[in-house]
Design a protein around this nucleic acid. Structure first.
Lengths: 346, 346
DNA sequence: AATGAGAGTGGAAGCGCTCTCAGGCTGCGA
DNA sequence: TCGCAGCCTGAGAGCGCTTCCACTCTCATT
């Protein structure tokens, strides 16, 4: 007997089909299918035969055919609602992408990348999702408020958000960090350091991270009976941080502590302070937020708040898996605590 | 007459099917299909009717069904043969991902991310590709030599590489930069600066970028009649650069110019030189390579060689599209020239 | 007036898979 | 001995789509 299977049709098209597997294993297509998918109600003998045939033929199910009948695609969309290229270079995004891919690949789910440019692109993407070309979506929405999230929610597609969505936060699953707590912690650290005149450089008012961190700072200032009027706003960039810091120095020359809502802005602040001849942390203590690489390389290295982004991404993936597998459970939310990382700047 | 279509089966499952479109348009499924896909051999009247029906029903083709018969999946795999998370944070990768996604989305192709861990994961990924779960692959192989590329080539799947593959470079399409020319250029710059004792910190011997840049440096040194014995190797990391630079200073204390094969290693070299009390560029001139952000933020900012990575990624996508659309043309390769970016370090 | 080319069309096959359903087999208790 | 669960199994339908093929209608040509 030859080692090679000598079946009627030796797979004309290249890839083996279930039919060939079944024939080689001496069972019907139905039994082969059952054996391959979990194998309940299949005799040991049949299972072994099918497994063997699969191996010999190098068989993999045709996803399209399977998908056609199961109405599952085996893919999950990772939705990035911002076309801005900066998002991509963001270590946050890189890590998220990596972790999500890893977790989902354990369930043999492929990650499909969806990037929404404005207008037409977004339209196409929504159509893509509406027509269930993916089984679910993970939305990296840690940024701007957008109607996009609204629309996505209304599709009823299994989804989980990384970063609390601006609206609908009780209708979908999401993970986030406790930005209020982080804002509070930064302010408290500066207070404990003995700073008397504490300012903040807040993030944009249309991002939850910006709003919440400021809110936390305000709470801590109020608790300590400090004034909370020294507030400047930036856009989470270095340049934004520079401008905001200049403004602060002009309006409140006596400032001796600044809680900055992002490391990048803190970098800008550091530059301005250095140019103004203020020593950090001796004259002015500075805290950042995010701890994504730049913080430890600045001069001086930034004391900052660190988010467990890997855990967040993994949890977001798991939340989605739960919806995919367990039917439509109630939306869940998971909030992670930021960790204070003490370096030299405060 | 009501505005709503009053057809027999008002799409029980949610998504409209071609059948419903056809019925509403008053044509057969076959004609509807033709009208939707390009529309040759379809009368103007039928086309309009179908277009209208599509719009009214919000129809999108079921990808699985289409894929089953056309044997096209509408997706392209972006293959990252390194599980290392650093790859992800690499701005090179981020940019590539972004550009590739953009170019392919113009053809309605989805990017599916494939990350190969070692062993089992890689196996699964090859199976995925072998079974044509994607129409083609773009491989970000700018790194290590690996048998993976060999295997991928042997699948006969349409593919293009970003970064010349270690082997099979005449059997597949690829894009790359002229690392030899870049290496040469760095060495020449140092020569023109008047450096008398020029060293290099080369990259790993198992990466084409490492090998080629060193080769270019050697050529330029030979052309100028300079000795080319001051060579240290690093692994493209800061730490590797530090170690290599220490070694160089110990073995060749008279060195006054170093062509470093990556910015990150150059950063390490800068640190070591500064610690050794050598001024850059006055005592020792230093060039980097890559120009991916860190170069302009170092102290002093690095003179370095910059690669047009966006163009490379776009071209790689186009090379793949050519294969996908034009049948199996001969493999093509496109080599881009690096650009010298002069900053303070040399 | 008869013929043929060419364009538009619909019937029907079939892509590879899952899953329902009915039937066969086994082993048990009556 | 018979009946009845309970377990396995295979036939077959059908998922939604593209495409082959045969057919009908024009027109223009002989």
């Amino acid at each position: 007997m030859s080692d090679e299977p000598d079946v009627d049709a030796p797979s004309p098209r290249g890839a083996a089909t279930l039919d060939e597997v079944a024939r080689l294993a001496g069972v019907s297509r139905a039994t082969a299918s059952r054996a391959i998918n979990g194998g309940s109600r299949v005799s040991e003998r049949a299972r072994v035969a099918v497994d063997d045939a699969v191996r010999r033929l190098g068989y993999t199910p045709n996803l399209a055919a399977r998908s056609l009948v199961t109405r599952r695609t085996g893919s999950v969309a990772l939705v990035v609602p911002e076309p801005d290229e900066r998002v991509f270079s963001d270590p946050f995004f890189a890590r998220t992408l990596h972790v999500v891919t890893r977790v989902l690949s354990e369930r043999d789910l492929q990650v499909v990348l969806l990037i929404a440019g404005p207008g037409e692109q977004e339209e196409r993407m929504l159509r893509y999702l509406r027509n269930r070309h993916s089984d679910g979506a993970i939305v990296v929405s840690h940024h701007r408020r957008d109607s996009f999230a609204d629309q996505l929610v209304s599709l009823g597609l299994p989804a989980s958000f990384i970063g609390r969505p601006w609206r609908h936060d009780d209708e979908v699953s999401w993970v986030d960090t406790d930005n209020v707590a982080g804002g509070r912690e930064a302010a408290r650290l500066l207070q404990e350091r003995g700073c008397r005149r504490i300012a903040t450089i807040a993030g944009p008012a249309d991002m939850t991270a910006g709003v919440d961190r400021l809110e936390g700072w305000r709470q801590a200032m109020a608790d300590a009976g400090h004034a909370d009027d020294a507030v400047a706003r930036g856009d989470f960039t270095i340049e934004g941080g520079e401008a905001a810091c200049k403004q602060l120095l002009a309006e409140h020359p006596d400032v001796d502590g600044i809680a900055v809502a992002s490391d990048l802005m803190a970098l800008g602040a550091l530059r301005v302070l250095s140019a103004a001849g203020r020593r950090v942390p001796d004259d002015v203590a500075v805290t950042g937020y995010d701890d994504l690489g730049v913080a430890e390389r600045s001069d001086p290295p930034l004391t900052t708040l660190s988010n467990p982004i890997s855990e967040m991404a993994a949890e977001a993936a798991r939340l989605l898996l739960a919806q995919l597998e367990g039917g439509s459970a109630a939306p869940r939310r998971v909030v992670f605590a930021p960790t204070l990382v003490r370096r030299a700047s405060a």
